[in-house]
């Protein structure tokens, strides 16, 4: 187990450097004049230009620039963005929003997804099952930005719920954005849980449980559920990782000042340092979540061996 984790962490390090190098290269080396890209339309004075060259080590070879950047990142000095603001400060103020949004969406996905999936799975072929299948298919087919936009429009026109989260600190304001953010995960979770429950209900150990004289609720709620959750939880773990970072569209639509929103802003104003930093952080979050899921998988399914 310990060896497995060590090996996985080493893999994570490789993946981390690989992705950050790629993003860094895309943001800096791939543009002709990084400083022009950084500055955008604004004319730059000679001294500012020199300061920027100094700040981002632009007179050095690319890999050295990258190494300086990684050194900053790993010593938790996230540097400043093109308008001179501390990126660390920016992330610190945005992160709680994203965290709250992602967790709310995640709770919604876990609770509703597993409950609906189990009900549909135990009543396969019934009205509830068929309705669930059609509805989840609809949700899966419609892109999130469409669902989000439509809901935001409807909400704003009929004044049903707040569609602009900035300046509203309550958790209630995040409910609709969380529903939008979690909708795709929810639909997939429902379907996954349904299939898994259906399959497990046919398993031999269910017949054994029935032969023991256990009540139906216990057979489904303990024997079947515990087995059915193995693939579902694996999926949910990875989803939590992407919910944390993948909220760019949702945060933009509902003006949630989270990480996704900042990333969107940084991309649109070509603020390279911010983009690279946020993406690097998201990569770390995603990798860590993946590791947790893989370790959890062994706890859930005792047949898995870490070798």
């Amino acid at each position: 187990m310990a060896r497995y984790i060590v090996r996985r962490v080493l893999q994570m390090v490789l993946a981390f450097f690989g992705t950050t190098l790629l993003v860094y290269w895309l943001m800096f080396a791939a543009s002709g004049d990084p400083i022009a890209a950084l500055a955008g339309e604004r004319p730059l004075s000679e001294s500012t230009r020199a300061a920027l060259i100094q700040e981002f080590h632009l007179d050095q070879p690319f890999l050295v620039q990258y190494a300086y950047y990684m050194k900053g990142l790993l010593t938790l000095d996230l540097g400043v963005n093109t308008s001179g603001r501390e990126i660390g400060e920016l992330v610190a103020s945005a992160w709680p929003w994203t965290l709250r949004l992602a967790l709310l969406a995640f709770v919604f996905v876990v609770v509703a997804g597993i409950a609906l999936g189990v009900i549909a799975g135990t009543r396969r072929g019934g009205a509830f099952d068929n309705t669930t299948l059609v509805l989840t298919l609809v949700v899966i087919s419609i892109p999130v930005f469409v669902i989000g936009q439509v809901l935001a429009l409807v909400g704003a026109r009929y004044d049903l719920f707040p569609t602009n989260v900035v300046g509203d600190d309550s958790l209630a304001a995040l409910i609709v954005p969380a529903l939008v953010l979690g909708s795709l995960s929810l639909a997939t979770t429902v379907r996954l849980a349904r299939t898994s429950v259906t399959e497990n209900l046919r398993a031999d150990y269910v017949r054994t449980a029935r032969a023991k004289g256990l009540i139906h609720r216990r057979i489904v709620g303990v024997h079947v559920l515990r087995n059915s959750l193995i693939p579902v939880i694996t999926f949910l773990g990875v989803e939590l990782g992407s919910l944390m970072g993948g909220a760019i569209v949702t945060e933009k639509i509902f003006n949630v000042p989270g990480i996704g929103f900042q990333l969107y802003k940084a991309i649109s104003i070509e603020d390279g340092p911010t983009v690279v930093t946020i993406v690097s952080l998201l990569v770390i979050v995603y990798l860590v979540m993946n590791l947790i899921v893989d370790v959890l998988y062994g706890v859930l399914d005792p047949r898995i061996r870490y070798e």
Partner: peptide
């Protein structure tokens, strides 16, 4: 093997 529940 299949008649016993694998996760308990």
């Amino acid at each position: 093997l299949s008649a016993l529940n694998p996760v308990f």
